[in-house]
Each structure stands twice: as C-alpha cells, then as structure tokens.
C-alpha cells in the first residue's frame, strides 16, 4: 500500500488549530519540526513551546487523532527539545492573525510595538506573565484597555 505523501500530511496538519489560541495553527506557531516516513511509520516531530505548557499533551493528542482519522496506522510522535523553540519560527501570517485576534505579536525589542486594539504606542507592562506561559499582560495608555502580548522566547 502507498503512504500519503509527506506534503499531504503537512497539509492535513495545517488545519490543526493551537488549542489555547485557536486563531493560529500549529504550523503557524512553528512547533511541528518534521514529518518523515521511517519505513512504515510516520514520524511527526514536535517541539514544546514552554517546557511545562499543559497544551503540549493536548497538541499531541490532536495530532494523533487527526492522523488516525486520515488512516495512518503506524504513527510516532517524537519530542524534540533542541534547537529550543523560539518565537522567531512563528510565521508572518501567524503574527498578523494574532494581532487581529487582540494579542500583540512577539517583537525582538522584548515588548509589544503597538496596542492590538487601537494601535496606540503608549504602553505599559502589567505583568511578565499571563493567562498562558507564552503571554504577558500589558495595557494601552491611549485606549486604557489591557491586552495580551505574546512573549519573545
């Protein structure tokens, strides 16, 4: 029997949303690092965002459920730690989608460049930690709304 191609598998995986920020996909996030066939086994390599992120096990479950549904029988999910995940791997599309969703995308400067709601640039950090390990809490002093910022890592 012939295997679905690697490209086909990437296409399927591209439909999987991040469980905590469903507006972006797992591929947008840059955490799926490889798809290969090793003999009859499909190996999908996934890297965690933060080492204790509770979404990691959910993500693995979503990947497995999807690929089983697509008829993949021999599947191995491999965890890859190195090189460690970085927000640099996030696609430009993902950054745009995050901002539209109300989460300021990561910036090399270490803080958001503008308020995702009003575009204001007078911003203050409320806390380096937010509702998920990957986010911080900020506030816009122009529109006074709090917002989340996806931290650089």
């Amino acid at each position: 029997m012939t295997h679905p191609s690697v490209e086909q598998v990437w296409e399927w995986l591209g439909t999987l949303p991040d469980p905590e920020i469903p507006v972006i996909t797992l591929i947008d996030l840059g955490i799926i690092r490889g798809v290969t066939w090793e003999g009859d086994t499909l190996v999908v390599t996934v890297t965690p965002t933060y080492s204790g992120c509770p979404a990691t096990s959910m993500i693995n479950m979503d990947i497995e459920a999807l690929l089983r549904e697509k008829g993949i029988e021999n599947l191995e999910l491999r965890r890859q730690l190195s090189p460690a995940w970085t927000t640099d791997w996030m696609t430009d599309e993902a950054r745009a989608k995050l901002e539209e969703y109300g989460i300021a995308p990561p910036q090399p400067a270490g803080g958001p460049s503008r308020c995702p709601r009003c575009g204001g640039t007078h911003l203050e950090k409320l806390s380096q930690f937010g509702s998920t390990p990957c986010k911080a809490q900020w506030r816009c002093q122009d529109c006074l709304e709090p917002f989340e910022y996806f931290k650089c890592i």
């Binding site: 933060y50 080492s51 204790g52 806390s127 380096q128 930690f129 390990p133 809490q137």
Partner: peptide, 20 residues
C-alpha cells in the same frame, strides 16, 4: 490576580523542567 498568575506560571515552568 497578576501575582497569582505569575506564581502559577513560574511553578509550571519549574515542573515542566522537572519532567525533563
């Protein structure tokens, strides 16, 4: 609340590192 979240996040990172 902000401190509660920050402490929980820190604990989560540390326990994640522990798993490794």
């Amino acid at each position: 609340l902000e401190e509660d979240i920050a402490l929980a996040n820190t604990a989560l990172d540390l326990i994640g590192q522990t798993q490794l």
